[in-house]
Simulated scan of single mutants.
Amino acid sequence: MSRCLNNNDILLEISGGGPDQPVGRTVLITQSIINNFPYPAVCTNFLRLMRPVKNISATYLNYYLNKFYLSGEVTNYQGGSNNLRNLKFKEYSKINIPIPSINEQKIIAEKLDLLLAQVQETKSRLEQIPELLKQFRQSVLSDAVSGKLTEEWRESKNLNDWKNGILKDFIKKPSYGTSTKSKKVGSVPVLRMGNLKNGNLDWADLVYTSDQTEIDKYELIAGDVLFNRTNSPELVGKTSIYRGERKAIYAGYLIKIQCLDDLNPEYLNYNLNSPEAKQYCYEVKSDGVSQSNINAQKLGEYPIQIPSLQEQNEIVRRVEQLFAYADKIEQQVNTALEKVNHLPQSILAKAFRGELTAQWRAENVDLITGENSAASLLEKIQVERAQNNKNKKKK
């Protein structure tokens, strides 16, 4: 059999995969794919070329093999290691495939084309929402630090006393964290730059210390704001607030900021995560080979506008409310995505149980009986296969 690819050929992955990726995926070669190559395309040794016999729809067959893969049954036909899996093609080629009449195969393939395209479109739209929510959160923070978020509220309260200055005018002297190497076990966690995520602290992937001298020197108190002074150019300057969740100290790549009485730490945390603060960090960072740095002096020179404590509290309340709304939407989107990701397998299972074409069969009896029946089709396939084997022996 020629290794050059033709329209309606099916390529089966027989070697590759990985720990979380079983081998056995398939792809249907269409004329549009072939037309994209300026030269004849061939099948590599990592793939097995399958060419459906007459009266077998390539699209139908490929959908069934896809369903077989998604079901997880394909793992029963694999060998090799977790890092390199091989498909036992001889055993795999013996799997049972439901074969209706060629007319019904085509109808099933058409229905699957339509339904799975709709699923993919829905999935694509859902996957765009997290980015939109990210932009929404940044817009909220921008409005918060500019005063736009509370403009009407401020006017109703006759509050117009925003103070202009730089950050060091409103905080105690910033301090760097511990440079002592942490351990996998210990009595107190050491927060690192990886624990700062989206303005909050992520308590996963912790390291620890049991050194009491270090704990006494670097112990955090509720309201401390942590600034990531060294990271990649995209992440340097990310900020989170410690709310006293559990006893902890902080590592050397972080700067601890403690607010004076006229600055709400929650407001500062939101401010330092705003687009304006990120732009400032981008402008003042010093770049190394693979990392950027913003020292305490540059941090202290960050230009900042500070409203009254009353308005700061109102800004924090509104931001929390809007972020909670965005979080709820994101949770709903994630739930919907999880369901959508399972839809293809469910649709494919229904298709090959005959559920998608039950009404069609009832309305088109003449197309699935006699010469058009599945039994007649199977007989034709067996005759064709026998003839092919006979021709191979002659060669």
Rank of each mutant, 00 (worst) to 15 (best):
N372F: 13
K339I: 02
A358P: 02
V316H: 00
G199P: 04
L206C: 12
S210W: 04
V27F: 04
G300M: 02
S376I: 08
L343D: 04
N264S: 14
L196M: 15
K298C: 08
S232K: 14
N391K: 14
P265V: 07
V119R: 08
Q128A: 15
N195I: 05
T369M: 11
T213L: 12
A336W: 05
P40C: 10
E276K: 14
S240P: 08
I249Y: 02
G370I: 01
S274A: 11
I347M: 00
I56K: 02
S57K: 10
L132S: 04
L367T: 10
G16I: 13
L235Q: 13
N36P: 00
E104A: 05
G177W: 01
R25I: 03
V42H: 13
A362I: 09
G16D: 12
V188G: 01
K394E: 12
N76I: 01
A349D: 11
L377Y: 05
Y39V: 12
P303D: 14
W153Y: 12
E110W: 00
L367V: 09
Q105R: 10
G223Y: 03
L220W: 04
G354L: 01
G16F: 11
F170P: 00
V316Q: 02
E301V: 00
L322F: 10
Y64C: 03
Q331N: 12
E155S: 13
Q387F: 09
E73Q: 13
N293M: 08
K278T: 08
Q120V: 01
H342M: 07
T75R: 15
E234K: 14
D113Q: 11
L367P: 01
L159G: 05
K217M: 08
K285A: 06
Q258A: 06
